[in-house]
């Protein structure tokens, strides 16, 4: 778990004159679950978009495996396809659940993924809804489709942007069990953005606190919650931070 998968150095992200992210250094290790916590607007989702190479950094470098990405150098398609994101509010295609799950495989020109699709649909509990129109699903079911369409790609890195926000306990439990299994059995490196500190504590190996686009502290989960080194982390953990 110690090998570095991502390494960010002096990364900033600006929209016009507004700087939303400024990370001096961040390492994401192979096979870990890293939870990103922090108030709304702290830059967590922006960081995920950078890690999925959906946006380039305004400055600095992102090292992923052996490739270096900076404002002038975009990642190859092959590299980009090793990372995928489950978004907080999934937008599903106007197709069946099955076709939505198959979509990512089709993008990669894979025609024979029926076994994989059936397997992930089984795991997310959507076999009975495989032929249902994805747009007719409930929020929890839609989020499970979003997870299934990411899982079927067997990514090296799974980025999750508040995947259980507003979901009922059943769906939260199901998604958390899948994230844990993927990490343990497939070695999927996971970066999880969450507002739920209990979830971060349940799932993550390490936790990072972002405030105003900057990383305040990154620590092993136990140290983060029990012996935070920064007073702002301590305030966050005690629930005293207003956001």
């Amino acid at each position: 778990m110690n090998e570095s998968l991502f390494r960010l150095r002096d990364v900033t992200r600006r929209y016009g004159s507004r700087q939303v992210l400024s990370i001096d250094e961040l390492e994401i290790r192979q096979g870990e679950i890293l939870a990103l916590v922090g108030p709304s607007g702290a830059g967590k989702s922006t960081l995920l978009r950078l890690l999925n190479f959906l946006e380039p950094p305004s400055q600095g470098t992102i090292e992923f495996l052996d490739e270096q990405i900076d404002p002038d150098r975009q990642p190859s398609l092959e590299l980009r396809r090793r990372v995928t994101t489950v978004f907080q509010r999934p937008v599903l295609l106007r197709r069946s659940v099955y076709q939505n799950v198959r979509y990512g495989l089709q993008l990669r020109g894979q025609r024979d993924g029926a076994g994989q699709i059936d397997r992930v649909l089984e795991e997310v509990g959507l076999v009975d809804l495989a032929q249902a129109q994805a747009r007719t699903l409930s929020g929890g079911e839609a989020q499970r489709v979003a997870l299934a369409r990411a899982m079927v790609l067997e990514p090296d890195v799974l980025l999750m942007d508040e995947p259980t926000a507003n979901l009922d306990p059943y769906n939260v439990g199901l998604i958390e069990r899948i994230v844990t299994r993927l990490n343990r059995e497939a070695g999927t490196t996971t970066v999880l953005v969450t507002h739920n500190v209990f979830q971060a504590r349940r799932l993550a190996h390490r936790v990072a606190l972002l405030l105003e686009g900057r990383i305040v502290e990154v620590a092993d989960v136990q140290a983060f919650f029990e012996q935070p080194s920064d007073p702002r982390t301590a305030a966050f953990v005690r629930g005293e931070m207003v956001y």
Partner: peptide
């Protein structure tokens, strides 16, 4: 958001 999400799936 659809564009961002399909790009995130490797499109």
């Amino acid at each position: 958001n659809l564009r961002l999400q399909v790009l995130g799936l490797g499109a």
